[in-house]
Design a protein around this nucleic acid. Structure first.
Length: 641
DNA sequence: GTAGGGTTAG
């Protein structure tokens, strides 16, 4: 009876019935029912119920039953702690190779890599499964180098390599993201004659995409037989496209998968495609997938829910994001972080801080990401609360016992810099207890751009370039810094320097979603089918804005050309093209929604403010800094971004 | 007892 209730997903009733039986000391439930109940408890994080079932199993003498034991390990791995799993295994009457291996897997699942290694070294006997368990554990914890070392040892010792071994090695290589090594590993796997093992093939697709070898990934993906279950390999490919800056392809793949109907979208695929919808700002599609999530019953999966919340925020729908958060039965730290990040994306610092207080009253403890986020919230508070920000930073270590990393310093520097405390920010970096990553200096350089401070900016840029001479983004920042302060010749010098070193700027791109399609524009892009309408529309728009007082700022043109040509470059920036397309394709009174992959330039920002006046339209512009909500000539970023 | 795809920041 209890088992059938669980099967029908009526957990509450099943637990109730179990409690009745449990109270009556004369009765015990059988091993199968105990296992079923434990699986149910794992599914809904019912720690108390699971513990009660465990106590019952001990009383009935079923703890050592193989299926009960496995269910208990599964339950404690998901809902409990490593102590629970360790205590359970300690009580097993026989400590054989299987128990030892289970210990390794458990320690690895909880992230205790050193303890797992200790157990492995202490084991009186080892076989290839124990090696595989350790190998997989390294991969699970991102220890690719350790995994590869172990693999080499296995080969040297002549151990039997199974499909499990090869899958883990492929995984390790994906973690390293090294294209050349991936070639070698692939050669090795082929030599071993892995045949058509689904796990290895899926791992290979994932590895290729992580190493940037999309053609190889596609080749393997297309070889997948259509009669075989493909949800995993399809998701690998979909995420691969997303990871390699091809979100449109990821969306097409999802459409294909839906229309062909042979691969059913599961919770992992839905999570991934929702993330892509967020990246693109694809609200309509995101809503449709939300419908699918509700229909398929995946809305209680916390990862799916978090991805939904994130999607709504990135698509500009704050209300749906918050409603989805409240509709989710179980929140983890990522749910809270997503909520905070969402408010920050909309520059709502006070709202983010309010969420922070609510989180502090919940049972969830903030993690390192929470702090990186909440420190940044002080950029967007209504009153200058730099003091509170400094205190929060200090409390990290003092109260929460989280050691600040470069990311946290970068957030703090960003806030101080934003409010104009550039010297203090520089001082903090110089006094950091460890070597700062380039990202910390970059946060300060960004502040120098905002405040047009070339004195500090130049110093900071030197640091970054010496640390990361290969990274073109610094040159762009320095160049923009000079441009923003009207020092055009210097900006061009930096550009020249960049060209001399063979760097190419990450191409700037803006897009609009219209009729379920992404309409993307680069600077001076003429590839759109409605190119003529867009360019003539933009001509008119520019004239209207000039009449209203718009003054083109040619310092944002990063090419050495004549003044009249500069305007030509400036007028056809991707943001302006996308905005015009948005005006042409939406009815009067409808807002325009644009997304840009990097920061919007100062001239486009000023232009869009005039556009909002002359067309009486509301503009939602999302760039790398967050949303610019432009209305009646004013922007929510207060012209600091 | 060991294997494949997922969410948040920068």
């Amino acid at each position: 009876m209890i088992s059938s209730l669980v099967k029908e997903l009526k957990y509450e009733k099943a637990f109730e019935l179990f409690r009745d039986v449990n109270r009556d000391n004369g009765f015990t439930v059988d091993c199968f029912t105990i296992s079923t109940l434990l699986t149910a408890c794992s599914g809904c994080f019912a720690l108390m119920e699971g513990r009660a079932v465990h106590a019952h199993a001990i009383r009935a003498g079923f703890e050592t039953n193989l299926s009960v034991k496995n269910a208990l390990i599964g339950f404690y791995t998901k809902c409990g702690s490593i102590k629970d799993v360790a205590a359970l295994l300690e009580r097993m009457p026989v400590r054989d190779i299987i128990t030892w291996t289970e210990m390794i897997t458990a320690y690895m699942a909880f992230g205790y890599v050193d303890l797992a290694v200790e157990i492995f070294d202490k084991m009186p006997e080892k076989n290839c499964i124990s090696y595989n368990a350790l190998l997989a554990g390294f991969c699970k914890n991102g220890k690719a180098v350790e995994a590869l070392d172990l693999f080499v040892k296995m080969v040297e010792q002549g151990l039997v390599l199974t499909d499990f071994t090869l899958t883990s090695v492929v995984n390790a290589c994906g973690l390293l993201m090294e294209a050349e090594l991936s070639e070698q590993i692939y050669g090795f796997v082929t030599k071993c004659g892995f045949g058509s093992n689904a796990c290895i093939e899926a791992a290979l697709v994932d590895m290729w995409t992580r190493c940037g070898r999309m053609a190889d990934a596609e080749k393997m993906f297309h070889r997948w037989p259509s009669d075989k279950d493909g949800s995993i390999i399809w998701t690998s490919m979909l995420c691969g496209y997303a990871r390699n800056g091809q979100p449109e392809r990821a969306i097409s793949l999802f459409h294909l998968c839906q229309s062909e109907g042979r691969v059913v979208a599961d919770e992992v695929m839905l999570t991934s495609v929702l993330s892509v919808c967020g990246t693109l700002g694809f609200l309509e599609m995101g809503k449709q997938i939300h419908g699918l999530v509700l229909k398929t019953g995946f809305s209680s999966d916390v990862l799916v829910a978090n991805s939904l919340i994130n999607m709504y925020f990135k698509c500009g729908n704050i209300n749906n994001a918050i409603t989805t958060f409240h509709a989710t039965p179980l929140h983890d730290i990522v749910s809270w972080n997503t909520l905070i990040a969402g408010h920050l994306l909309h520059r709502q610092g006070d709202e983010a801080l309010a969420v922070w207080s609510r989180m502090e009253n919940s049972s969830i403890k903030p993690d390192a990401v929470s702090f990186a986020l909440i420190i940044s919230a002080y950029k967007y508070t209504n009153s200058n609360s730099v003091d509170s920000c400094r205190n929060l930073f200090l409390s990290m270590k003092a109260i929460y016992e989280i050691e600040p990393t470069s990311e946290h310093y970068a957030s703090l520097v960003g806030v101080l810099g934003y409010w104009g405390f550039l010297e203090e920010a520089e001082e903090i970096i110089n006094r950091m207890p460890f070597e700062p990553k380039a990202s910390v200096w970059r946060a300060l350089l960004d502040s120098c751009r905002i405040h047009s401070n070339t004195t500090i900016g130049k110093r900071v840029a030197k640091h970054i370039i010496s640390m990361e001479p290969q990274d073109p983004s610094t040159y762009v920042l320095v160049s923009n810094l000079y441009s923003a302060s009207g020092r055009w010749p210097n900006a061009e010098m930096v550009r020249e320097d960049m060209r001399g070193k063979g760097f190419q700027k990450h191409p700037s791109r803006s897009w609009i979603i219209h009729q379920n399609k992404v309409h993307s524009f680069y600077v001076r892009d003429k590839s759109h089918p409605q190119e003529k309408d867009i360019y003539s529309g933009l001509e008119i728009l520019i004239l209207e804005c000039l009449k209203a007082g718009y003054v083109p700022d040619t310092s944002f043109v990063l090419h050495e050309v004549e003044e009249h040509q500069k305007k030509d470059f400036l007028f056809y920036h991707s943001a302006k093209l996308a905005a015009t397309y948005g005006l042409l394709t939406t009815r009067h009174g409808q807002p325009i929604r644009i997304v840009k992959n990097i920061l919007i330039c100062g001239d486009c920002h000023s232009f869009l403010k005039y556009v909002s006046v002359v067309t009486r339209r509301e503009i939602f512009f999302r760039d790398a800094s967050g949303f610019h909500h432009i209305l009646n000539g004013q922007c929510s970023c207060k012209d600091y971004w």
